[in-house]
Amino acid sequence: MTDASRSILPRATIPRFERPSAGAFIAWVIVVGLAVWSVGGVGLSPERLARGLPALSGILNRMFPPDLERLPQILWSLLVTFQMAAAGAVLGLILAFPLAALAAEGVSPHPVVRQAARALIALFRTVPDLVWALLFVIAVGLGPPAGVLAIMVDKIGFAGRFFAEAMEETDQGPREALTALGASRLDVLFCAIVPQAMPSFIATSLFSLEKAVRGSVILGLVGAGGVGVELKVAFDLFAYSTAATIIICIFLLVLVVEQSSNWVRRKLI
C-alpha cells in the first residue's frame, strides 16, 4: 500500500462501536425493563436470599453423609426411570418421523396436511411434559406407563419439529434428480431426504434420550413412576440423607447417559 493510499483512509473517523438505532435502543430498554420488572414481581431480593441461606445450609448438613440403607430400592427405581425414558423416547422418535414428514415443506403431500401436522407438533411441544404426565396419570393410573406416555408425547413434539426442519434443509438437487426419473414421494423421502438428514436425526434422537432421562425423574413427583416417587417420599418424610443418595444416583445416571450419547454422536456423525 502506498503512502498516498494510506492517507485517504479516514481511520480516525471509523468508530469502535456503532451507535444503536432508535429502534434497537427502544428494544434494549424494553428487554432490561422486562427483566427488572419480572425479578421485582416474583419478590426475589438479596435479603430474602440471605435469609434462606441458613435453611439451605441446614438441609445440606442433614443430607450428608448420604444414607445408603435404601440403595437397592433406589437403584431399582432408577432402572425403572431409565426404562421409562428409553421406552418413551424410542416410541416418541418413531412416531415423530412420519409426523415430521407430513409437516415438512416439500415433503408433505398437501398444505392442509402440513398445517395440521405442524399444529399437532406445536401442541405436543408447547404443553409441558409434567402436564402430560398429570393427564396420563388420570387416564392410565399411577405408575411408569403414565410416565412413558408423557415422555412419548413430549418427544413427538420435540423431535417432530427438529426432524421436519432437518428434512426441509436437505439439498434439493438429489430430490429433484429422483423426482425427474419418476420416483415416488416415498422413494424420494427414503432415498434422498433421510440419508441427507441422518446426522441431524441422530443428534436429535440422542438429545431426546438425554432430555427424557432428565425429565423422567421429575415425572415421578406427580405419580408417573420411577425414582421421582422415591425422591418425593424422602422429602415428604424429611429423610434428607436418603434424598441425597437419590440425587447423587440421578446425577450419575444423567452423567452416564450424556457421556454415552456424546460418544455415540462422535462415532456416528
Binding site: 438437487g173 429433484e176 426419473l181 440419508p195
Partner: peptide, 25 residues
C-alpha cells in the same frame, strides 16, 4: 434420463446405491 450439472447424487450413500436409484423408474 437426466444428467445434472451438479450431479445431484445423494451424499452419504455409496456409488452403488446411487446408481441403484435409477431403477426407481
Amino acid at each position: 434420463g437426466f444428467v445434472f450439472q451438479k450431479h445431484n447424487l445423494v451424499p452419504r450413500l455409496s456409488a452403488l446405491s446411487n446408481v441403484l436409484h435409477g431403477a426407481q423408474a
